[in-house]
Amino acid sequence: MKEQVYKTEKFANRDFIKGLTIGTIIGEAAISMLNEGTRTKVNKLVKDIKKVTTNKSFILQNNPSEAKRNCISGIKRIFSTIEALNNTIEKAIVNQRTSK
Rank of each mutant, 00 (worst) to 15 (best):
M1A: 11
K2V: 04
K2W: 03
E3R: 05
Q4F: 06
Q4W: 03
V5T: 12
Y6R: 12
F11R: 11
N13C: 01
I17R: 13
I17E: 14
G19D: 03
I22W: 04
I22M: 11
E28L: 15
A29P: 01
S32P: 01
M33T: 13
L34N: 15
N35K: 09
E36L: 06
T38P: 00
R39F: 04
R39A: 08
K41G: 02
K41L: 06
K51Y: 09
K51W: 04
T53L: 07
T54M: 07
N55K: 12
N55C: 05
K56T: 12
K56I: 14
S57V: 08
S57L: 10
F58H: 11
I59G: 04
I59K: 09
L60F: 09
N63Q: 12
P64V: 04
S65W: 03
E66L: 09
N70D: 05
C71M: 06
C71D: 02
I72M: 01
S73I: 00
K76H: 02
T81E: 08
E83N: 07
E83R: 01
A84K: 15
L85V: 09
L85P: 01
N86P: 01
N86L: 14
N86V: 13
N87R: 13
I89Y: 08
A92R: 11
V94W: 03
V94E: 12
N95V: 04
N95Q: 07
N95C: 03
Q96T: 08
T98F: 05
K100H: 07
